[in-house]
Design a protein around this nucleic acid. Structure first.
Length: 828
DNA sequence: TTAGGATTTG
């Protein structure tokens, strides 16, 4: 039992302590040493009520006095007891009793002590293997009475009107003003906090700590704080608070009715019901006595020329080269001041001819050059109604997700951070939620701008609480902001209109370029290939009057085209018999698969030298069998993305799923002596999203085991054409077939497009399964032949056509085909 | 030690 009562009779414990335990002296305790088999003995001089930690763990704290060394300077130590032991001890322990603890952990206090308390605490818990022995004297109160004997903590809170110089006190207050922690000129972080309480007296405290986390987590005016052990001093006739050793703080949201959850960095703190009452009372008092409506704003609500606090998310950061940034932005002509040259020479060179204001400017430029400043793109999901200033930074200097920054380019604003804030800004993590205090929104205009823009500056210094605070994700404002940001659909939201205009703006330097581009789109939408540059344009009338076959370069407009439903333009072509056929639809494939599912897999064909076979039975009522033959390479199975599978008995859906994961799928069925391909109306091979078909007329299927020769290759590429060849399949090719009606001033003619990939720069085999490519193709056609335009307004196209003869028994007819033409990429 | 509330002037 971890907590044991030892009965003392005639000054001796009835039961002795375990013999392996050795007594340790309080003075000799050191952090990091092993105290598994050591014990400390003392008298309980103080115990605090049992409390719970933030994570729900029971916590009990006592002060143990070293009864052997009462005269020594340090003769007491705090013992922190966690979990079940805390609960047990709280029930049993009484003031003045002898307490023995073994297997404890020694933890050094963060700051040096000014009182007689030990520089370390003892941490005790069942999990750590600790044991506690409490020595009771017979005839004293029973364990059940002990709770009432526990001594309440001696925390007394001093109202702000009762503070005296030179004292160390505990106090409560409402935050009237604060500076978020910043890096001081000394060694620590500093936070300045002004408190008020119902006595209506103000107290400004300067709080220092090397650990940012140890300073109060104040996020807004109106927050309520509890300070323990703050030193009071008089300064300039007023009381002032300053951190002393052992300073600790709790911070609470000041909103009436909000949950009372202390913000603290210390694992251990006491917080009683009574103190909860204090917070509630202060909240109510503050509600009618403190103006907590801070200068918070959303970007959508910013006005020029004001200072405001912004709750936002950091999406990027960049060091700004002070000199180049200033040189770019200065409206003063830097050249005539000779500044550029002076900067090259060095900051000590100051042109003699300068006026005083120019000198000031020069010095600030020099300072900027020496002290880099910083820019932080942030967003809060709302759009600033004014044009905002984009701080010029090199792309390489900008940290953050480029795609995300691009998506946010109309929503994010740049905050330019100066001087003492730079170091803190540099350390911020992108994606973190911030409250930036006292941002200056400054209206400005550059010489080359007609309309003014807004700049956001976080100036140097900490006046008015200027600074940056990182908010935790648990903060209610952050929760709300996060939910809002996540609700935004940046792909469509973000005003397509402005996105489009931005794209144009960023692509073209000026209006003239843009105009030229538009003209070019309209006049020369289709580029010609250079190997036919020698050809000059021929009028359509001339072409029609000439004999075939011949090749021409033409300049014409596309009056109309067929099919208008572009997916219908995709056909399968056999280059051997020159036949064209429709692409079978999925129902055909499904039908064939169902038909072959009736054929049971032949176990004799399983597991050969070149494939490994596995059979599953489906869980559904039908209990179908699916057999997969994994083709091996060098007698080994390959990675799925390199593997060819032969599948027996799968459904359309199952095969489709397998094709997502494995390189190639060949649907097969068993015969007596070999695996066979299915009917050639079904694809003989599936690779990525593409179904490959064979020509029924020209194919002469060979045994599937021929594949083993490909599998044996050093690095099987599993090219569809190679697979087709070994399987005796004449591969059908996907092709676009379209009819273009072309016109020029002299006449019209129909030309066919027969294209595997070249014209649209889209592989015909991929178009049916790729929405993006379908859209691209539609856009191309819309550019070549914009819907709803009159003939005169259609763009001119340049392309090659060739004429050819088609003879049948009755007559000879001339046809035209577009060839060697590619739609220029910038058309789409 | 640092800051000691009380907007940069870029």
């Amino acid at each position: 039992m971890p907590v044991q009562l030892l009965k003392i009779v005639k000054g001796q414990s009835e039961t002795p302590l375990p013999s392996h335990l050795q007594k340790e002296n309080l003075q000799q305790l050191e952090e990091g040493c092993d105290y598994t088999n050591k014990y400390i003995q003392g008298i309980v001089s103080l115990s605090y009520p049992l409390t719970k930690l933030g994570d729900g763990t029971d916590f009990f704290k006592i002060v143990l006095q070293d009864s052997d060394n009462l005269s020594s300077q340090i003769n007491s130590i705090h013992v922190f007891i966690y979990g079940k032991m805390a609960e047990d001890c709280a029930k049993m322990i009484r003031h003045g009793e002898t307490f023995i603890v073994a297997g404890f952990k020694v933890v050094k206090l963060p700051t040096a002590r000014e009182d007689d308390r030990h520089g370390c605490n003892l941490e005790v818990s069942e999990e750590a293997g600790s044991a506690i022995y409490i020595c009771t004297k017979p005839g004293t109160t029973t364990a059940s009475e002990t709770a009432s004997v526990s001594v309440a903590p001696k925390y007394v809170y001093t109202p702000l009107n009762h503070l005296k110089d030179g004292t160390i006190v505990n106090l409560y207050g409402v935050v009237k003003f604060f500076k978020p922690p910043y890096i001081s000129k000394g060694t620590d972080y500093c936070s300045v906090v002004t408190l008020v309480d119902p006595s209506n007296v103000k107290l400004t405290c300067s709080l220092f700590n090397g650990n940012l986390d140890s300073l109060p987590k104040i996020y807004k005016v109106g927050d309520i704080v509890r300070f323990h052990r703050i030193k009071i001093r008089e300064y300039n006739g007023q009381m002032q608070g300053i951190t002393s050793g052992g300073f600790a703080s709790l911070t609470f949201d000041g909103t009436v009715g909000a949950p009372i959850v202390p913000r603290t960095s210390s694992r251990v703190y006491t917080f009683m019901d009574e103190e909860q009452k204090t917070v509630e009372e202060l909240r109510i008092w503050a509600a009618s006595n403190i103006s907590i409506s801070g200068p918070a704003a959303k970007l959508s609500g910013v006005q020029p020329m004001l200072f405001f606090d912004l709750t936002c998310q950091l999406v990027g950061k960049a060091k700004v080269d002070g000199s180049s940034f200033l040189l770019k932005c200065l409206t003063h002509g830097t050249k005539h001041l000779g500044i550029t040259n002076c900067l090259k020479i060095g900051p000590s060179v100051e042109p003699m001819c300068m006026k005083s204001c120019e000198k000031r400017h020069f010095r600030s430029i020099v300072q900027m050059r020496l002290n880099f400043c910083f820019t932080m793109p942030v967003w809060d999901g709302t759009k600033c109604p004014y044009p905002t200033w984009k701080v010029p930074v090199e792309a390489k200097d900008l940290e953050g997700d480029k795609v995300f920054l691009h998506q946010l380019r109309n929503l994010a604003v740049d905050i330019l951070v100066y001087d003492n804030h730079v170091q803190l800004a540099e350390s911020l993590k992108i994606g973190s939620f911030l409250r930036i205090y006292s941002i200056h929104s400054k209206q400005a205009s550059a010489d080359n701008e007609d309309v003014s823009h807004i700049e956001f500056h976080l100036h140097g210094g900490t006046c008015y609480g200027r600074g940056i605070g990182v908010l935790p994700e648990s903060n209610p404002d952050v929760k709300e902001l996060k939910a809002f940001l996540e609700s935004l659909d940046l792909t469509v939201g973000q005003n397509m209109e402005s996105m489009c205009s931005m794209d144009v703006d960023s692509t073209f330097d000026n209006d003239t370029d843009l105009e030229l581009h538009l003209q070019r789109c309209q006049q020369l939408s289709v580029k010609v290939l250079t190997d036919h540059q020698d050809l000059s344009n021929t009028e359509l009338k001339t072409i029609k009057n000439s004999s075939a076959p011949r090749q021409y370069r033409i300049r014409a407009k596309l009056r109309t085209y067929k099919p208008q439903k572009l997916h219908q333009s995709v056909k399968l072509h056999c280059s051997k018999c020159n036949s064209l056929q429709e692409v079978p639809d999925r129902d055909d494939f499904d039908f064939i698969l169902r038909g072959s599912a009736g054929t049971a897999s032949n176990p004799e064909l399983h597991n050969t030298s070149w494939y490994e076979s596995v059979t599953w039975t489906t869980q559904d009522q039908k209990q179908r069998e699916i057999t997969i033959h994994f083709v091996k390479h060098d007698e080994m199975l390959q990675h799925p993305e390199d593997t060819l599978l032969m599948v027996e008995g799968g459904t359309l859906k199952e095969i489709w799923k397998l094709s997502k994961r494995f390189k190639c799928i060949i649907p097969v069925r068993s015969t007596e002596d070999d695996l066979k391909l299915l009917d050639l109306s079904a694809p003989f091979l599936l690779q990525r999203n593409v179904k490959y078909y064979g020509c029924k007329q020209c194919s002469a299927p060979k045994p599937v085991k021929n594949l083993s020769s490909l599998a044996a290759e050093q690095q099987p590429s599993w090219e569809p054409s190679e697979i087709a060849q070994v399987l005796g399949i004449e591969l059908l090719q996907y092709v676009f077939i379209m009819k273009f009606t072309l016109v020029d001033e002299t006449g019209a003619l129909n030309a066919y497009l027969f294209d595997y990939e070249k014209f649209f720069q889209i592989p015909a085999c991929e178009i049916l399964t790729n929405n993006f490519l379908q859209e691209k193709m539609q856009m191309t056609m819309n550019t070549l032949c914009p819907p709803g335009r009159k003939l005169g307004d259609l763009p001119w196209l340049e392309c090659f056509i060739k004429s050819y003869n088609v003879r049948d028994a009755m007559k000879n007819q001339v046809y035209y085909q577009i060839f060697d033409t590619t739609v220029a990429e910038d058309v789409v």
